[in-house]
């Protein structure tokens, strides 16, 4: 069965087991590095992507569920040449240690800023509550989102 969706603005068409987790399709078939495998249980947030603008756990979503929908990954959010304010802010605040959870933090923060361009630190912490970071970069991550909010157009 074929699956068709929009990935980072481009149409994608695949012939895969429709039950395959979206994360596996993005990483293995479409060679993306942004979304990461962390738990496969929707508990850590490393795999987050935007589906129709909502931060979603791609590790538990079967690829068939995004048929006809719009998926944006970290790569689609911005690039080194055309960065998203959050990406610049994470560099500026040095808001990561190992960087494995960073994808999910930026994706969920992007959803937050799209819906609430001027969140306070409590809003940011609430939005990121479902994301795990083992290195203890939390204070820097919050600062980076605050900085990006200030830089948003």
């Amino acid at each position: 069965m074929g699956v068709n969706f929009t990935l980072n603005g481009k149409p994608v068409s695949l012939d895969v087991d429709p039950q395959t987790p979206l994360l596996e399709v993005l990483r293995n078939d479409l060679q993306l590095n942004g979304p990461k495998f962390g738990c496969g249980l929707a508990q850590c947030g490393a795999c987050a992507v935007l589906i129709d603008g909502n931060s979603s756990r791609s590790c538990v979503i079967p690829v068939s569920a995004v048929n006809g929908r719009e998926v944006i990954s970290l790569e689609g959010l911005g690039t080194a040449k055309n960065p998203h304010p959050l990406q610049l802010a994470f560099i500026e605040e040095q808001a990561l240690q190992c960087g494995y959870c960073t994808n999910g933090m930026i994706i969920t923060a992007a959803e937050l800023l799209a819906k609430n361009p001027h969140p306070d630190s409590a809003d940011i912490k609430r939005a990121l509550a479902g994301h795990q970071c083992r290195c203890g970069a939390h204070p820097r991550i919050v600062k980076a989102v605050e900085r990006a909010a200030g830089d948003m157009p």
Binding site: N28, N33, G34, K36, F90, Q94, T102, I106
Partner: peptide, 20 residues
């Protein structure tokens, strides 16, 4: 600034998991 951070925020191949 850390040399490895830009690649990690833009989704470059930075981890073992990205080895294909």
């Amino acid at each position: 600034k850390r040399l490895d951070i830009p690649g990690k925020v833009y989704g470059d191949a930075a981890f073992l998991q990205d080895l294909r």
